[in-house]
Design a protein around this nucleic acid. Structure first.
Lengths: 341, 341
DNA sequence: GCGTGATTTGTAACCGGTTACATTGGCGAT
DNA sequence: ATCGCCAATGTAACCGGTTACAAATCACGC
């Protein structure tokens, strides 16, 4: 591999001159520049990035800690991260943590070992954040804690859930079930608050039996829907905290011969690509997934380059997307020609 | 940041001894080891990875070139890559190329610049592969060329498409449309061959008008299905080269009030997670997405570490998954109670 | 007590860039 | 002609590990 010294030899100049020609050409005379460029060409010189990283103590790499890469929502966030990082000439080091704290910690060491300049966390994780963020450039997007020790970008989950619940109430529903995410998730807690806000505002009593646990995956939505169907008095609408769970629930309802939205309304959260391709297309809350990625990169790079942040904690906009899976329970009483049973 | 020299000073030994204690402890006396470990602890020493990479000329990073991260299939492949790489203590540098050759070339330079030790290409790309693979450790999985200049792992796309077409023929279909992928893709060419193999074996004439172009996305499947519905004689079955296109086509058929599989059978390819949650659940070809990632990593690391490969070109197994979107056209004549029109 | 070989440790070069500082040369002002 | 200054270039240290080679130490047999 040709090094800068080889180029210097070919050009008949010193290594410093070669380095300067490549980094700060304005301090080198045009004639010398010419010679150096010719020598670079002749030697097929490619700068050794690891040497540059080593010398500069900067890698221009970002570590992304993601619980599950294959999740459609996270995949979009990562896509946004990748896009934004590329524009700033940063690389993206991807780490699938499976939500495992040990793996997260292990990867974060990449940063303390100078293998990357900063960390993007897509999941709230107290002890790790608290211990590390003081010393590590780090941002937290998507799922964040109440008092995050680092810059964040998130949704107003409470307001979003409230809007969706209000939409269902406006349709005329009063028994609205909710399929939740994991108990410990701040996401779930906030969405539950929004749900209860809307119920309270409408004077509807909160019914604990309409609250089902899930884990954001289709099978968990399926299982939760099954349990809802065994209830003595069924809900007329189900609000799922993720589209994936809604899709699982939809499957269950279809198998049970329950028409959506004819007999039961169904709403999701995330607006993944397949939401609009469901039968019926899913009413949901759109999240700006790619924008989360972009915000994360923008804030993290500001942190790394010690530039001040205009906004420490960003709240990105959500949007209620009403499609065909939600409707008035009045229509439900009329039944549907599509009903299998 | 404490360096090895700081540790050496604290332990009262030379830097070489510290280095040896950490890398080859067996050549260091137990008493010295003890002292060094204590000093490491006291100094809070963390090895500088970039220094190690620079010195060893090995980064233990792999570059993954992926056309579209947010694609559910690729996301699964990446997940497999990440998993396997992690097990071998390699990192994954993710690059979204959008199928852009320039971006691909730019990222491949990361390797020639020693930022990574090898490249995984998830897409066939002649000029780049030919130019680079001679000098670069590189593997190509998922979509590969006929005479690939590097190790590969792929599906027997021809056999898989033949199986699916045979399944449709066995159901009784004779007018079987195909929604293809991009013209230049080897994937598409092979699947088309398999489709024609099956038709020929069954004595069915190939009908060019039943061949529709697509780009693997739902909207392209939707558009292609629309065009099929304008045909004077409609097909009784549609075989899509990706589940995403099948989902788009399904949407179109639903909107047109055409029952699946009552009036028309529909088949996909990939077996993405949502295939089984479609209405009706989609008959498709399952691909071992994660296994592609694992195979890629295994082969690439062998290449990097100059170990011989048992198999240069792997063919991973596919599986025909028959669900409810395909059925006999006899049933179609009977109509369906579900039909909207 | 001394030579021999094995074990343990130290010294310093090295990887490939960057950059502080030194040096050289050219030019204008006095 | 001399001085001063600036632009252009060169020399060499440096980043933090690894490792070839040298040196020191030790055990052991004669």
């Amino acid at each position: 591999m040709s090094s800068i010294r080889e180029v210097a030899r070919l050009a008949g100049v010193s290594v410093a001159t070669v380095s300067r020609t490549l980094k700060t050409p304005e301090v080198v005379s045009p004639a010398t520049r010419e010679k150096v460029h010719a020598a670079v060409e002749a030697a097929g010189y490619r700068p050794n990035l690891t040497a540059i990283q080593f010398r500069s103590q900067r890698t221009r790499n970002l570590v992304v800690l993601v619980p599950k890469i294959a999740n459609t929502f996270f995949a979009r966030v990562i896509s946004g991260i990748q896009q934004a990082a590329q524009a700033c000439h940063y690389g993206v080091l991807l780490c699938n943590t499976h939500g495992d704290e040990q793996i997260e910690a292990q990867y974060a060491q990449l940063v303390s070992s100078r293998q990357a300049d900063g960390v993007i966390q897509l999941r709230a994780f107290d002890p790790f954040l608290e211990g590390a963020s003081a010393t590590l450039p780090m941002v937290n997007v998507c799922e964040v804690l109440d008092a995050p020790p680092c810059p964040t970008a998130t949704l107003d989950n409470r307001a979003a859930a409230r809007e969706m619940t209000e939409h269902l109430i406006a349709c005329g529903h009063r028994r609205i079930a909710m399929i939740k995410g994991p108990r410990r998730s701040p996401l779930t807690r906030d969405r539950l608050l929004g749900y209860r806000d809307a119920l309270a505002a409408a004077g509807i009593d909160f019914d604990e039996s309409l609250l089902l646990p899930g884990d954001f995956t289709p099978p968990s939505g399926y299982a939760a829907a099954q349990r809802l169907l065994t209830l003595p008095v069924r809900p007329s609408a189900i609000f799922c905290e993720s589209d994936e769970m809604a899709i699982g629930a939809l499957q269950c309802l279809r198998e049970a011969g329950i028409d959506v939205p004819g007999e039961m309304s169904l709403a999701g959260f995330d607006d993944i690509e397949f939401a609009r391709f469901c039968a019926p297309p899913l009413t949901t809350i759109a999240q700006p997934a790619e924008a989360f990625g972009e915000a994360a990169v923008e804030m993290l790079i500001a942190l790394i380059e010690q530039r001040p942040l205009e906004i420490e904690h960003r709240v990105l906009p959500h949007r209620l997307v009403v499609r065909e899976s939600t409707a008035s329970p009045v229509a439900q009483q009329g039944g549907s020609p599509l009903g299998v049973i």
